[in-house]
Structure formats: C-alpha cells, structure tokens
Amino acid sequence: MSDRTRNTPEMSQSAASRRVAKVGLDSLDNLWFQVGGTLCNLACEHCFISCSPQNDKFKMMSLAQIQPYLDEAVVLGVKEFYFTGGEPFLNDEIFDILEATLAIGPATVLTNGTIITNRRARELARLEANSIYSLEIRVSLDGFDEPSNDRLRGKGSFKLALNGITRLVEQGMLPILTAVQTWSEAEHERMLAGFKQLLADIGYTRPRFKIIPALDLGAYQQNKIGPAVTEYVTEEMLEDFDRSQLICSNSRMVTNSGVHVCPILIDYPDSRMGESLKATTGEYRLRHPACYTCYLSGAICSNFSSGGQSER
C-alpha cells in the first residue's frame, strides 16, 4: 500500500482551499472496473497504485459483483467500459465478464500483456468477432528494448509482453501499445520510432499507441522517478477550460469497495463517492496533484476513439 502522508498544498491554507475546483458528472460516458484489484504479477517501479503480487488492498471482482453495475450503467446511458487492475488476465472470470459486457457495449482491457497465451489471444479474438462492439486491448510497455523496459517493469517482462502483443496480432487484433512517458520531450520522436521498429519487427506494421503522462502517485512517487507535482486545480483554472477533458466529468471507477471518482485516485480514501453509480454523480473537489496532471494532459485514461468532447 502506498504512503499517502504527503500534504497537498490546499490542505495547509484555508483561503486556498475555498478555491479548489469542483467537477460533477456531466454524463457517464466511461465506466471503469478495477477487475484485477491491485494484484499484479509485476511490480512496476512507476505504478501509480503500487500494484504487485502482494498488494491486495483492492480485490479481484467477480461477474456477480460487476453485473449490477453494468445494468445500472445502461440505464444511465454509458458509452464504453474499461477493465484494469492489477492484471485483469489474472482474474479467472475475465472472459465471462468481457462477454457479458460486449453484449451491451464496447470494452477495453488494460493489461501488461505478459500472460496473454495463445489460448487467451484466440478467446479475445473470438469475443470481439461475436460482438458488434469493439474490444480494445491496451498493452503496457515502457521501453523498446529489454534494459529500458525491464528497468521499470521488472526482469523478463519485456520478452513476455512482446510475446503477448505478437499473439494478439497473430489473431488479427490491433492492440494499442501504451507507455508512460518517462522520457523527455526531446527524446519523444526517438522513442516513438523505436517502438514502431520493435513492432514492425514482430510483424505489426500498423501499430497504435497511447502515450500517457507519468502520475506522481503510488510507486512512482515513492521511487522518486520524476519531479514531484505540488499543484492542484483551482476554480480560476477551469474558466474557459473544456471540463470534458477531465475524467471525473464523464467517468467513474468501480472497485470491490464501491464507486470511485476516477481510475487514478482509488488509493485515496476520499475518492470513494458511494456504493451505486446513481449516488456518485455529484461534485468532486480536484484537490490532488494528480488532478493537476489530468488537467494539463487531458483525456489521459480513455481511448482516442472516444475523442475530445469540447463544446462550443
């Protein structure tokens, strides 16, 4: 479990605390499930919720736990479903859960790719083929060679993840390679070119990428991988700002302990907003430094196909 003792700036100043921005749910476009809990076969240095083989703060979720939220989300007009962890493919029920989901809408799985066997890849391709909706698989990789990736994700993870990607591509799927930007802007083009070459070498010639900003949370924070973020989001910052870029305006996260404001903040007790989706449409105060990162980067969790949602 990660340490949550660091002060956020507004806590020390009551005047400032009044200016912290609040954002409510405009529409439930994206519903997330912490389907793998915080259990993972890897223990990445930069994981923003410190998932590991030992971290069972959040438990894996069963189809029986998830189904009522799927039903409730349909009533609320949800558009997309996302499944993350931990590692979702450690969950024995993941394929039943995806099948139930794909009967009602599109699904995305965020995985480390290391345990995608041939059987699992075939099953995923079958599930997508049987649905009118897309099934997206986002596979995390944080370097285009073994040393740079395994430094963050653990020894042996590069080869295993690449095998997983290869198997998905062999099944005709178009996995989205997802990387946390742990490199500087100056290095960005070189990194992208490296990833493209790596994927071309395994026969994936039309790769898709999602590069997400590092979040100063969890293991990333403890391991001091990047500079600390101490800013937060104020009301003034949201004037003339497209609020739909903030996850909390269009998403909620379901864990085994209830409904949280977003997928990023589940380690903070104050992120839990209630038991049902209906009960969690109210406003949330953007008091955390991660809110500031979300504000700066925008739409960091959803797929590109969701698009931006700026209004005139």
């Binding site: 349909v74 007009g77 949800v78 997309e80 009602i104 599109p106 969701s306």
Partner: peptide, 20 residues
Amino acid sequence: PRRVNEFMWESTSPTHLLER
C-alpha cells in the same frame, strides 16, 4: 444530439444510448 463533435462509431455506440 448532445455534442457537436461526439464521435458516433458503429462499434462504440451502444444501442441503449441510441435509444436514449
């Protein structure tokens, strides 16, 4: 109907949302 630049793709537009 709700957003000028919302992307309504066939494979990501749930039927229940279209009904709504």
